[in-house]
């Protein structure tokens, strides 16, 4: 898997896609639906020519990307879960971090935290969830637990400064909940925001659209 060799292959590929008289049956045809096993499922056909860039080439071999196409419905809070129903209105806003955590903030300036559908898929079957202790105060970026799956321990970080006011104990006996419903019943902790006014406008946090775009850029 020498990068040099991969590059040479890609040059050929891109040249082919640039032939205008390409037949519809070509494997490089933009009209061809992408299979789940496609090595680069997140590259849209329009941006194919960008495969020339080494940064995008590298992604072809990147196993962190699950073989699923994401659209906006992948990154919404499960409306049937406690995270949504906690207050009548549903969460005020939902934010995302680079480390693939989500944060759903309610009117009472408390936020639920969990890992995104993307992260849950990439990690695989969870075998153990380490939860934070209720009552502890955490800073932005501070470790608030971890997810163990298939021999890997993955740290979870707090997206906000606040106090842990609840943890999802069910995950202790049912860690697989984090795979089944990562953005709902698989929530990890509820945090009372200590600086609520700075959270919604924070440049560190992304909205769902930005988060989706960040996955494409990776």
């Amino acid at each position: 898997m020498l990068p040099g060799r991969a590059l040479r292959l890609e040059v050929v590929r891109v040249e082919k896609t640039n032939i205008p008289s390409q037949s519809a049956g070509s494997p490089f045809s933009p009209s061809q639906p992408e299979s789940c096993d496609s090595p680069a499922p997140l590259v849209s056909p329009v941006t194919r020519s960008s495969l020339m860039r080494p940064s995008v080439l590298a992604r072809q071999f990147k196993p962190m990307i699950p073989s699923v196409r994401y659209n906006s419905t992948n990154f919404t809070i499960n409306t049937q879960s406690h995270v949504f129903k906690y207050l009548n209105e549903g969460p005020k806003y939902v934010k995302f971090t680079e480390e693939h955590e989500w944060l759903a903030v309610h009117e009472d300036d408390t936020g639920f935290v969990g890992i995104t559908t993307y992260a849950a898929e990439a990690l695989g079957d969870a075998t153990f969830i380490e939860l934070p202790e209720v009552g502890t105060t955490v800073d932005i970026g501070e470790n608030i637990g971890s997810v163990e799956s298939v021999k890997s321990a993955s740290e979870i970080y707090s997206p906000v400064h606040g106090e842990i006011i609840a943890v999802n104990d069910i995950l202790e006996s049912k860690p697989q909940l984090i795979n089944d419903d990562p953005m709902g019943n698989g929530w990890i902790a509820q945090i009372k925001l200590l600086e609520p006014t700075t959270v919604e406008s924070s440049e560190e946090l992304m909205d769902s659209e930005q988060y989706e775009d960040s996955l494409k850029d990776e």
């Binding site: 990147k62 962190m64 153990f128 163990e148 298939v150 021999k151 321990a153």
Partner: peptide, 28 residues
Amino acid sequence: KSGGGTVVHDGGNVNYSFMTTKNNFDRY
């Protein structure tokens, strides 16, 4: 600090540790 199971070490065992970015992580 990593996940997984129990292992026994002694002088006849070499431990390796390969570090890369999270995006490039996989188990193989």
